[in-house]
């Protein structure tokens, strides 16, 4: 396979939910072997983009190729084969609550392989060691803090040695220490395991420290892309609002509403 070709190739993608277009003509190339960040204000469809890339939902128009497979026409069986080459870290970890930390990490191995117990044990402990939680192997998910759950979920996501690792908002609700740990893990796992990492986030400062490339989404389109430094230097109003955290701008502070005083003075019909 061509090592230079992008691992995810999106062309004029269209996707509509309940009559509201989320994406309309989105183009994006995600390079192999790098940490790519997808940023944007809430509600721009970042998580939806991940669901499209992982085949949890299907695009209406355009094309998405992931590792050479066309996600729009991929059959269920082939999709499951492809997913074994992907790992995904959900926002809250999504650990299976009835299994211990060890069993959670062992879960994909037990489901997909016939490895002997000794080997499973070694693999699981290695991955837990990589995220610093070998000592927590016997705990249940309910006994873990938010940051620990996410690290266990990360160990589970890499246990099958995926080619692509996808993070959905990995920094939400973490204390500075856990956040630093996750940031370092993203970089270290990407480089040592030779992965391609895709990180969806809106934490501009955090993600800028690990990402090789950034896409800024707004209104269903890529409004800027490049290195984090490129983004900081970008003069466009949309980029400035997002990077600078300004309340009002191209993304309005107010949700569309009728005229303010008119509604205040109206005699409460409809409410």
């Amino acid at each position: 396979m061509n090592q230079e070709a992008p691992i995810v190739e999106i062309r004029s993608l269209g996707y509509t939910v309940g009559g509201r277009p989320i994406f309309d003509g989105l183009d994006m190339d995600i390079p192999r072997g790098r940490v790519t960040a997808v940023m944007g204000p809430s509600g721009t469809g970042k998580t939806t983009l991940l669901r499209l890339i992982t085949g949890q939902v299907r695009a209406d128009t355009g094309s998405i190729d992931v590792a050479g497979e066309n996600m729009r026409i991929l059959k269920r069986d082939a999709l499951y084969v492809l997913r074994r080459r992907m790992g995904m870290l959900f926002q809250n970890g999504a650990l299976l609550t009835d299994l211990s930390v060890f069993e959670n990490v062992a879960f994909p191995l037990r489901e997909h392989t016939d490895l002997p117990e000794r080997l499973i044990r070694q693999l699981v402990l290695t991955k837990l060691q990589a995220v610093g939680l070998r000592g927590a192997a016997d705990l249940m998910p309910s006994e873990l803090s938010g940051g620990m759950s996410r690290r266990v979920a990360l160990a589970r996501a890499i246990v099958m040695d995926p080619e692509i690792l996808i993070y959905d908002e990995p920094f939400v609700g973490l204390d500075p220490i856990s956040l630093g740990v996750i940031l370092r893990l993203i970089r270290r796992l990407n480089d040592t395991l030779g992965l391609t990492s895709i990180v969806v986030s809106h934490d501009v400062r955090e993600i800028s420290t690990v990402a090789d490339q950034v896409f800024l989404l707004s209104g269903g389109k890529v409004v800027a892309s490049g290195t984090p430094q490129d983004l900081n230097a970008n003069p466009s109003e949309e980029v400035r609002q997002f990077v600078g955290g300004l309340a009002d701008g191209p993304v309005p502070f107010h949700y569309p509403a009728p005229e303010y005083f008119g509604e205040l003075l109206a005699r409460g019909e409809g409410h």
Binding site: T54, Q56, Y80, V81, R83, R84, M86, G87, M88, F90, Q91, N92, A94, L95, L96, T97, F107, P108, E111, H112, A153, R156, M160
Partner: peptide
């Protein structure tokens, strides 16, 4: 609750059919 906490989606992402498992 498994649905609400993404456990079923996580299984699908691990190529495990939640209906079967």
């Amino acid at each position: 609750l498994m649905r609400a906490t993404d456990q079923l989606s996580a299984m699908e992402m691990m190529a495990v059919d939640p209906i079967k498992r």
